[in-house]
Amino acid sequence: MRAEKTADGVALVRALEQHAPRRLFDDPLSARMISGWPSMVVAHRPLRWLFLRALERAGPGLYGAVVCRTRAIDDACRAALAIGINRVVIVGAGMDTRPYRMPEMAAAEVWEFDLASTQAVKKATLARALGDRPAHVRYLPLDLTAPDSADTLARAGTGRTLLICEAVTMYVPAEAVERVLAYAGTLASGSRMVLTYLPRAEADRAENRRWSRRLRWRSAFDPAELADRLRAHGLTPLADLGAEEHQARLLRPAGRTLSVFPGERIALAVVGYDRKSAP
């Protein structure tokens, strides 16, 4: 599956969430980031209902996983920006709208990294949705599988940073993930990282083989293994969130009854050792 298609699918889900009662986040821009049949689906209530039923049959919990992931990462972003971090690096930015919809990011210096083809689509889409792109966002093409990708990441600098790597690690080989972790370890002390990953137990589950082939999963980690890798690069794990945490923290308090696919977790970490934050 092409990266652009994956990014488009996430944008569609986020646009659909804007019509949900007790929605988990505000993203009015996502509906303007899609076109063609997805925009028709979002615009018409009967089509939204039919699409969501079909999506849940095809991939139980995928919708819930994307919207919970979005809200959890939004919360992590706000927490990092609230403590004075004013640089944001997004690896595999796709159709991420956070730099454009979150007021907290307006004063931040934002670097978006992604494949050149995906960035071309993103820029054209933003031009259609916003007109002029915000001056605080910079774009650099990046192929994490390329040997020089570490040098490309370094161009964003190593100041106190919020590093976001959402829905990327499962689609690249382990050595590419290692480059992201190595770059995170070069960031100034107190920098924060938000990274999603595929749990190895889910990758190995027989009933997920169809998704593994369709989505071309390439890397998976046990939570303890990933925590060890973070520590090896000088990061302190802060939290590791999955379907159970999303149900308890986000869905039940909002009165939502969504299922959540357990095939993605969110690791939160701080560069250096933070006595106040470390578990």
Rank of each mutant, 00 (worst) to 15 (best):
150 A>Y: 01
152 T>W: 00
152 T>E: 05
154 A>G: 03
155 R>W: 03
156 A>T: 05
156 A>K: 06
157 G>I: 04
159 G>L: 05
161 T>F: 11
163 L>H: 04
163 L>W: 00
164 I>A: 10
164 I>H: 05
164 I>W: 11
165 C>L: 04
165 C>Q: 03
167 A>Q: 10
167 A>M: 06
168 V>D: 06
169 T>M: 11
171 Y>H: 12
172 V>L: 06
173 P>R: 00
174 A>R: 15
174 A>Q: 14
175 E>Y: 09
175 E>L: 07
176 A>N: 09
177 V>C: 15
181 L>S: 01
181 L>T: 06
181 L>Q: 07
182 A>I: 06
183 Y>V: 10
184 A>P: 02
186 T>L: 01
186 T>H: 01
188 A>H: 07
190 G>F: 00
191 S>T: 05
192 R>W: 07
193 M>Y: 03
194 V>T: 12
195 L>F: 00
195 L>G: 04
195 L>Y: 03
195 L>T: 00
196 T>F: 06
196 T>A: 13
196 T>Q: 03
197 Y>G: 08
197 Y>W: 11
200 R>C: 08
200 R>M: 10
200 R>D: 15
201 A>D: 08
202 E>S: 13
202 E>Q: 15
202 E>H: 10
203 A>G: 14
204 D>T: 04
206 A>L: 10
206 A>G: 00
207 E>R: 09
207 E>Q: 04
207 E>H: 09
208 N>E: 08
210 R>S: 13
211 W>Y: 13
212 S>L: 07
213 R>Y: 10
213 R>N: 13
213 R>W: 11
214 R>F: 08
215 L>F: 13
215 L>V: 06
215 L>H: 10
218 R>V: 04
220 A>V: 06
221 F>T: 11
221 F>A: 14
221 F>N: 10
221 F>G: 03
222 D>N: 10
223 P>L: 13
226 L>H: 11
226 L>V: 12
227 A>L: 10
229 R>D: 11
230 L>V: 03
231 R>M: 14
232 A>H: 11
234 G>P: 02
236 T>Q: 15
238 L>C: 02
239 A>I: 05
242 G>T: 12
243 A>S: 14
244 E>Y: 10
244 E>N: 14
246 H>N: 09
246 H>E: 08
246 H>R: 09
249 R>L: 13
250 L>Q: 14
251 L>E: 04
252 R>K: 13
252 R>P: 01
254 A>M: 05
254 A>N: 02
255 G>T: 03
256 R>P: 07
256 R>M: 01
256 R>C: 00
258 L>E: 15
258 L>S: 07
260 V>W: 02
260 V>I: 08
261 F>E: 04
262 P>W: 01
262 P>K: 01
264 E>H: 04
264 E>I: 02
265 R>W: 08
266 I>D: 02
268 L>C: 13
268 L>F: 08
269 A>I: 09
269 A>M: 07
270 V>T: 07
270 V>F: 13
271 V>F: 00
271 V>T: 04
